[in-house]
Amino acid sequence: MFSLGCFLVILSPIVGAIPGPGGMFVFAAGFGLMLRYSKWVKRRYVLFKRRWPKHGRWTDWGLRRASAKRRAERKARLSESRSD
């Protein structure tokens, strides 16, 4: 599965040359597979998120990760408590 993810990430610029947003979805699928099946990629991703937390939130949201859901719930609770 990891090698399939690598293949999709490498394939994404080629698919991106075709009109439409296809390359972005191919890259996201490949990155998701790599992130799920490789500890090295996970460590790099954690370092990326620490350095650029705003971009990490977008990636979490795009991959539908549990951390993105927790942040959204926490944000909703905070906004409810502020409005009271």
Rank of each mutant, 00 (worst) to 15 (best):
F25C: 03
F25D: 06
F27P: 12
A28N: 04
A29F: 12
A29N: 09
G30P: 00
G30D: 02
G30N: 02
G30E: 01
F31T: 01
F31I: 00
F31Y: 12
F31W: 07
G32R: 11
G32N: 08
G32P: 03
L33V: 00
L33G: 01
L33W: 02
M34Q: 11
M34W: 04
L35R: 01
L35H: 06
L35A: 03
L35S: 03
R36C: 08
Y37P: 04
Y37S: 15
S38L: 02
K39I: 02
W40A: 11
W40N: 09
V41N: 00
V41C: 03
K42G: 10
R43Q: 11
R43H: 07
R44V: 08
V46G: 00
L47A: 15
F48N: 09
K49V: 11
K49E: 14
K49L: 08
R50P: 00
R50L: 10
R51Q: 13
R51V: 14
W52E: 13
W52I: 14
P53S: 06
P53C: 04
P53T: 01
K54I: 12
K54A: 10
K54F: 11
H55W: 13
G56A: 03
G56Q: 02
R57F: 06
R57A: 07
D60K: 01
D60Q: 00
G62M: 13
G62F: 12
G62R: 05
L63W: 04
L63M: 08
R64L: 08
R65H: 09
R65D: 05
S67Y: 00
S67A: 07
A68M: 03
A68H: 11
K69I: 13
R70A: 09
R70T: 14
R71T: 07
R71I: 03
